[in-house]
């Protein structure tokens, strides 16, 4: 099967709220796709629809070209971590994985393998009720890896992990993608995905705002902007405005200039004798690009509730 997730035209309404509004994107193999958006943007709902837990009013979601509910031994097609806390407290970690394994026709050897993979051998026979959030996340990841699936889907996997755990999780996600798997990771914090994701699906208000590689997103967000450092701020703004540029103050001695290439800026400033110390192509952070994209969605949610 193809290691993909294809979501097209998903619509879902919860009472008066439109949770999914024509949600469409594709997750490709071999890379980590970040699924980002503010809380309530529809990330978890989309994931539940993909996994056949929720039913969409319209549209379809396919794993490797097939709907989830038609998959035989589905955990060998897609592994998912939705809610790490979903455990029977009195059941041991190993037994939790063991029943899952047997439901897919796998056996205890595979269970021991994934326990080793997530570093939980020593806690295998402890009851899940006593686990910290970090251990539950690891157990959840182990469950997702159980069927060695070509597609992985993790909902906020970094949530609640200690710094060491975060580093481990990033490394794991990168290596899973490196093995050619399609990895979809949701987060409401772009910073969590900064060094992990290759590709981003940014959502807000139940629809896709941007579906782009991380590099393209930053370039797009920064396009045509130049950072100018000058001691004569007002003079610079005045002459550049006459030359057709748009300017914005970002600091005491820094302005961001758009709609004028850097060579023209230097020429205009020199011609008018305005002193400046630095002209640089402006590069926004991923976080900033994301905030710009989702500002509208956040605002909407803020007033709607």
């Amino acid at each position: 099967m193809r290691a993909t997730i294809e979501v097209s035209g998903l619509r879902k309404r919860f009472g008066p709220t439109l949770a999914l509004d024509d949600m469409t994107f594709t997750v490709l193999p071999g890379q980590v796709t970040g699924f980002v958006g503010p809380n309530g943007a529809g990330k978890s709902t989309t994931m539940r629809v993909i996994l056949g837990l929720d039913a969409a009013d319209e549209g379809r979601a396919l794993i490797g070209g097939r709907p989830y509910t038609s998959l035989r031994n589905p955990l060998t097609h897609v592994g998912a971590l939705l809610d790490a806390g979903a455990l029977q407290p009195s059941r041991t970690a190993r037994n939790h994985l063991l029943w899952l394994a047997h439901s897919q026709g796998l056996d205890g050897r595979r269970v021991d393998e994934v326990l080793r993979q997530v570093g939980m051998q020593s806690a295998a026979r402890r009851r899940a009720g006593g686990f910290s959030l970090g251990m539950r996340q690891r157990l959840g990841v182990a469950a997702a890896l159980l069927g060695d699936p070509p597609v992985l889907m993790l909902d906020e996997p970094v949530n609640g992990l200690d710094p060491e755990g975060v580093v481990w999780m990033r490394g794991l996600l990168r290596s899973l993608a490196g093995e050619g798997r399609a990895v979809l990771v949701s987060s409401h914090l772009m910073s969590e995905l900064e060094d992990t994701a290759d590709h981003l699906v940014v959502v807000g208000k139940g629809r896709v705002i941007a579906d782009t590689s991380v590099a393209d997103l930053i370039t797009t967000a920064s396009r045509g902007q130049v950072t100018l450092r000058t001691t004569a701020r007002s003079e610079a703004m005045s002459v550049l405005g006459h030359a057709g540029a748009t300017t914005a103050v970002t600091d005491r001695d820094t302005i961001v200039v758009s709609r004028l290439p850097s060579e023209r800026i230097v020429a205009v400033l020199t011609a008018n004798g305005v002193p400046f110390s630095e002209v640089a192509t402006h590069r926004v952070t991923l976080e900033q690009a994301y905030l710009d994209l989702t500002a509208d969605a956040v605002e909407y949610r803020g007033t709607a509730r």
């Binding site: 031994n73 060998t76 897919q104 026709g105 796998l106 595979r110 069927g147 060695d148 070509p150 093995e179 050619g180 798997r181």
Partner: peptide
């Protein structure tokens, strides 16, 4: 490329 575990 995966060495998938043999499922039932």
């Amino acid at each position: 490329a995966f060495s998938r575990p043999r499922a039932g």
